[in-house]
Nucleic acid binder design. Sequence first.
DNA 1: TCCAATAGTTCATTATTTCTGAACTATTGA
DNA 2: TCAATAGTTCAGAAATAATGAACTATTGGA
Lengths: 122, 122
Amino acid sequence: MRPLIHPAVEDITVEGILHALSDPVRVAIFTDIAFKDCTQNCSAFSAILGTPIPKSTLSQHFRILREAGLIRSERIGVEMHNISRCEEVDKRFPGLLNSIAQAHEIQLRQSKPKKSARRSPR
Amino acid sequence: MRPLIHPAVEDITVEGILHALSDPVRVAIFTDIAFKDCTQNCSAFSAILGTPIPKSTLSQHFRILREAGLIRSERIGVEMHNISRCEEVDKRFPGLLNSIAQAHEIQLRQSKPKKSARRSPR
DNA sequence: TCCAATAGTTCATTATTTCTGAACTATTGA
DNA sequence: TCAATAGTTCAGAAATAATGAACTATTGGA
């Protein structure tokens, strides 16, 4: 099993970040990791994301996030722990991740008025 | 020739924008269009970008930028004029394009200290 | 009016990337 | 030592992207 690749902060690229975050599954994963700063293992996400995603696919998504410099993965025992590298990325590209996160929120708020469908009063 | 697709501002997605701007050629094109607010025709870019890029490929890149909502294309006579939709995008996702542009600048500054090679004093 | 030139699009093929099931590796706990 | 768990890697299938060739639209002459 080859060692995991984590780029040095100065090798993180905008293209890499934008590409990594242009996929909705990866955005969901990354947002989750970034918000809960407790580390998240890989399989937890099959549940978090609506659709069940094969673990080989998840593994690739994590690799892309990792190699873009967005997360740091470490094996702890039998599972993988992932933490965000937001602070490092923010040092290199100030404000970038924040405005992307904000934009995603705006989009979510617009497309899902779900919550307002309280309870149909029969 | 089918009509060009320009999404309404509320249909512009973060994923679309990030995907469009995760390609260096498209970033170069978009930056150029956004900075010069004079409209730029398609072929001009073969010159602007270092490498010569086939026009069919350029056409696709323009389409992706257009359908992501980043530019507006209009046929004027025999050529195509492209203008940025920055202001609209900024209304929908405040600060997003700016921080991406800033990040790209930071990256450029780091990797190309070219300009400082003023003139070799023989 | 018709034709050549210009600018770009569309189509079809090839190349590249992404997805995914199956097999594999690493670690733990019994 | 073995079964269970968590994830990776590989190889083939599916989806995207790049590009040459043929096409469309417009203009500016002959």
